[in-house]
Design a protein around this nucleic acid. Sequence first.
DNA 1: CGCATTTCCTGGAGGC
DNA 2: TGCCTCCAGGAAATGC
Length: 278
Amino acid sequence: MPELPEAETIARRLHEELAGETLGRATVKRRDILHGDPRPLGRVVSNRRVRRVYRRAKRVIIELASGGSDAEHVDLVFHLGMSGQLLLCDQNAPREAHTHLRIAIRKTTRELRFRDPRRFGGVWLLAGGKKHVGRRLGELGPEPLELSAKEFRSVLSRQRQIKALLLDQRCIAGLGNIYCDEALHAAGIHPLTRADDLGVDRSARLLRSIKTTLRRAIRFNGSTLMDYRTADGEAGEFQKHHRVYQRTGQPCKHCRALIERIIAGGRSTFFCPRCQQP
DNA sequence: CGCATTTCCTGGAGGC
DNA sequence: TGCCTCCAGGAAATGC
């Protein structure tokens, strides 16, 4: 399930490979994964040069240079949802099921593919700063890796379970179920703790844990549990370093107590009952 | 405002 | 081997 580290891994690789390249013909196999500008995607996107590829929260954004006299700014925003993949491969590589969109890279034999079996993800074409139509892109809170301790304190000033708050993209953007649980464990904080009950010290510790966990996950190219792949189609490695996520009944790597599973924020939540006291 | 519930969707796991 | 049910989960929508 692509969260911030997975989106970052994909965006970095795509930037290396695509910055300066020009997009070619686009093939849309499923229209309903497309949102935003109602014009045909191929018409807006083809013959445009990629200025950069970057990440915001869990989204991968391809920023296109304005082409020729047509000076409008165009962003292609990919939201990978649960099972989305953005793959850079040869045009002749076998096409896996649920490949909804393909965009050729001009003067090469490669193409960019968007696959998403469960279709919780989607692609937004945002052009000319115009208000987009169709499915809305939700509002996003601040980037956790750019957050100061002081700003984080104000994020936490709510009477709400810390796990539910960290999952809420409007409060802090980019964490999903895996990295919430891993960060809370690293900080020694129980997932049901009320956010505004965390004092200055524990708040600062949690922010450090969030940043450390995300940076380590990025270093290992993210976590592959099922569908997630890098842009090259490789699996991530960080799942081997999970300390609590999906480890119910296994010993805590810190204190050997058995990892428990509860529901918090409507999601499976894994924690160590000894390291993370209520 | 917070929070629980439902919805979308497919594939994998487990039961029989 | 095959069929059935259950379940995972990001995030929006809905109801309390």
